[in-house]
Design a protein around this nucleic acid. Structure first.
Length: 130
DNA sequence: TTTCTAACA
DNA sequence: TGTTAGAA
């Protein structure tokens, strides 16, 4: 069951293909890389090579953006997602209650207000914690 | 031809 | 974000 994961992680798509698959412009794709939302490999000639996982990531970022979430908000979402995974790996039996999760999210959600003009409703809708 | 970086009448 | 110049 890890053969597929290996395949999905295999970076082989040039940016031109990614553009067609995601309907994003090269400019946007490169910009998201600058924001560290996607980290494609590079070929010998310094050309970007994307994997299927990268495509999913790009489409996900696109969805968030379409819903009005800004870069800061998206980074925040992935930050929380990573933090959660790390958390889950360590505290194997530290069941946070539903109210705990809501309290944590509420705190971070309020912090987002000072960043830009995040679409809070969308953030609520997409945040895995809600 | 395609992609890269850097920069902006 | 778009667009473009010059290079690879």
């Amino acid at each position: 069951m890890k053969g597929k994961e290996l395949l999905r992680s295999r970076s082989v798509l040039p940016i031109g293909t990614v553009m067609k698959l995601t309907n994003l412009t090269a400019r946007q794709i490169r910009y998201y890389e600058e924001q560290e939302l996607v980290l494609p490999d590079r070929s010998e000639g310094n050309r970007r090579l994307y994997s299927l996982n990268d495509i999913d990531r790009l489409l996900e970022v696109k969805d968030y953006l379409d819903d009005g979430i800004n870069m800061a908000g998206i980074k925040e979402i992935y930050r929380q997602r990573r933090q959660k995974q790390a958390s889950k790996r360590h505290e194997e039996n530290k069941p946070l209650t539903d109210s705990d999760l809501r309290r944590i999210l509420h705190d971070e959600f309020m912090n987002l207000g000072g960043l830009d003009t995040p679409d809070q409703q969308s953030f609520r809708t997409h945040n895995p914690l809600m």
